[in-house]
Design a protein around this nucleic acid. Structure first.
Length: 286
DNA sequence: TCTTGCGGTACTAAGACGGG
DNA sequence: CCCGTCTTAGTACCGCAAGA
């Protein structure tokens, strides 16, 4: 078993296809087939189920986590030997749609200005998906909404925001707003749980949701009178001044939105990453 | 409903190539 | 020269859509 064999194995596992893995790796398909077979013969076990695609067997799943760690360790070793005092190299970050829209534009612009040699990439996704990517070393760090209980992940609270209830400006009072449909994120949104808990305390158990997957779409929906929502106060300040939306405060214990920066505990703290975290912390203090 | 052709998939055999 | 790795060429299987 060599590193290349493991890379091939990982590519097939992640693509679920020998052909696609071969395209990504720059090999012909038959070679990838042969290498996978070789690995299976060497380990004397079947790693994939073949059925119009390649699906990991339990043994394959087991090997997958080892292979990820081995490849990751190798990359870390490489980075450790090459990490210079000046931040350089690739920095792969993730953020929820909200975090990426609210906090990152100015931080990233500033970061890019100071450290132009870092190849920055930002992926936006739901918190759960980002956490998975951190677990599998596919991202160096990510901004997510919920606090995690996971030994393999290091997390730090970086932003705390006040959430407010918003509606179209015509809404007269909070009771009227609460009986509107709520425009919320599609899934895994902690704001949604907070909203539901609070609404229950004021006697509203049945909530109609309109699901959106982007904060801008939610706010535009509220402006056009589709319903209400619970959003970070700072994201609608200017809209409220213009009279496009109306906001209502809700009790403090339900209105705090926390954003955490997470990374894998075994990922190497490169200069590029530590400078980014530094900037994140500076910006969160303002 | 059955047949046929097509596209996508994986597998095999043979030979080229390069490093030790 | 041997061995491991890779490519080329060809085969087989499967699912799907179109047509009889």
């Amino acid at each position: 078993m060599d590193i290349n064999e493991l890379r091939i194995f990982l590519a097939v596992a992640s693509e679920g296809s020998i052909t696609k893995a071969a395209q990504i790796l720059g090999y012909v398909q038959s070679n990838v087939t042969a290498r996978v077979q070789q690995l299976e013969a060497e380990l004397n076990t079947q790693l994939f189920y073949r059925q119009r695609g390649m699906l990991l067997t339990p043994a394959g799943e087991k090997l997958l986590s080892y292979a990820e760690q081995i490849i990751h360790l190798l990359e870390e070793a490489h980075k450790a030997l090459n990490d210079s005092t000046e931040p350089i190299g690739r920095l792969m970050l993730g953020a929820t749609h909200t975090a990426s829209a609210m906090y990152l534009p100015s931080i990233l612009a500033n970061y890019f200005k100071l450290y132009p040699k870092v190849e920055l990439s930002l992926m936006t996704d739901y918190s759960a998906e980002l956490v998975e990517k951190i677990r599998h070393f596919q991202l160096h760090g990510a901004l997510v909404k919920s606090e995690l209980n996971d030994e393999s992940i290091v997390q730090e609270l970086v932003f705390e925001e006040q959430l407010v209830l918003i509606s179209a400006p015509e809404m007269k009072n909070i009771e009227e707003v609460c009986h509107q449909p709520f425009l919320m994120n599609t899934k895994g949104c902690p704001h949604r749980d907070q909203l539901e808990t609070w609404l229950k305390t004021i006697g509203i158990g049945k909530i109609r949701y309109l699901e959106f997957n982007h904060p801008d779409a939610i706010i535009q929906g509220v402006i056009s009178g589709l319903g209400a929502s619970l959003v970070p106060k700072s994201s609608i300040l200017s809209l409220e001044i213009k009279g496009l939306v109306r906001s209502f405060e809700i009790p403090e214990q339900y209105s705090t939105a926390k954003t955490f920066f997470i990374r894998h505990k075994d990922s190497l703290m490169t200069n590029a990453l530590s400078k980014f975290i530094e900037m994140l912390k500076q910006s969160s203090q303002h």
